[in-house]
Nucleic acid binder design. Structure first.
Lengths: 211, 211
DNA sequence: TTAAAAGTCAGGGTAAACCCTAGTATGGGG
DNA sequence: CCCCATACTAGGGTTTACCCTGACTTTTAA
């Protein structure tokens, strides 16, 4: 039997996955979690083979959560769950130790295939995501789906900009020079491939870089 | 028996709702749809009493879809489904004929209560959303959820700003002076209660003023 | 341990955004 | 029909953002 745990803040999704798996005779659901913190606190007590992990939990960054979990439990097989097919997310997840990635429109067959595949030591990605990643690696690194990695400072500055602070205010809040803030801001504009603050905020929201 | 149809692009949510409702002896699921267009094309053949409608379908604007459906089928009882508790969305839905609104973390009990309530002719909103709306209507028209009415020009300028155009570019596109563009932009900043472009874009996206 | 990346700051300039005020259309109600 | 509210228009003046370059220190990962 493959022991599976699920972490998702939407009850409906939780119930949907439970239903899809309950008839399987190879898979047993050992735990469900609503929040990242709950997961971190309780998973040690009842470690599953496979964890289905929502990337967009309200209280945690799924990608960092994934890395933490793998660090503590290297044998844990994590499959990311998300609404979005942003390849940046997916690559980040895989880079941080996830063994698979599923969209929430996955059907029963694919869900079970994903779980059994990673349990056998493989990696599972849906066909269409494989295609997208393949296309990217060959030809165009499709700007639309690329999610840049921001540094700690850049993330801080981005959040403060989105809260309508001026560079000067941000400088005071972070105890750095306004020139430094400008640097971070320029880097953000470069990394997100935009022209100005309007694009910065729009793209940051689109890519899920802000809450 | 209450005939219920569901429209959601996430199979997992679809299955979750089905599961939650399958044991009920008052409710029967008569159809499920993945896309707004599919819903529009097929719902006439098999009209339900209650429709659970995802607001964030990939191919349609849930709010407009709601209005269209009500126009064609005034007796149809629509309950909006969404991940977000932005009261702006919710008010818009209700204004366009929806009879209820649920978040996707709803449990079985509340889901059934919502369906039976609207079927009896009532309106159903989760307790916490009721509280938010109530607070708003009493005291502070909580800037966060107040959706201002924009003029034609303001809407045009807002969209162009979000596309990273400068005032000068916008002026050329609209055949007006840059100073006029600045005025519209100032009015937008006033109306949305923000300080600068960052807030303008963020709030405009939050309130659904941009596509 | 060593190279790369991130964080820090500066100068000097241009462009854009922001603020306040105010005249000119324009369309719906008295 | 005229009036008034609202939208649209626009000016001058000030602040902030944006751009390019370069340099130094600290942190991180190979």
């Amino acid at each position: 039997m493959i022991k599976v745990a699920i972490c998702d803040d939407h009850t409906m999704v939780l119930r949907g996955i439970e239903t899809m798996l309950e008839d399987s005779d190879m898979i047993i659901i050992t735990a469900t979690y609503n929040l990242g913190k709950q997961l971190l606190a309780e998973i040690d007590n009842n470690l599953p083979n496979v964890l289905l992990l929502d990337i967009n939990l309200p209280d945690s960054n799924g990608i960092e959560l994934c890395r933490e979990l793998i660090k503590k439990h290297p044998q844990l097989l994590i499959i990311g769950l998300s609404n979005y097919s942003e390849t940046g997310f997916i690559k980040n997840m895989l880079r941080n130790g996830a063994k698979g990635y599923l969209l929430k429109n996955t059907d029963r067959q694919e869900l079970i295939l994903a779980i059994t595949t990673v349990h056998k030591g493989g990696t599972y990605l849906p066909r269409n995501i494989q295609d997208i990643l393949l296309n990217e690696s060959i030809g165009n690194p499709s700007q639309i789906t690329f999610i840049p990695k921001l540094t700690r400072r850049e993330t801080e500055v981005l959040h403060l900009v989105s809260k309508e602070h001026t560079n000067q205010e941000i400088a005071e809040l972070l105890f750095i020079s306004t020139k430094t803030v400008e640097s971070h801001r320029n880097n953000l504009i470069q990394k997100l491939g935009v022209r100005n603050t309007a694009g910065l905020i729009r793209v940051a929201l689109e890519k899920g870089l802000l809450g």
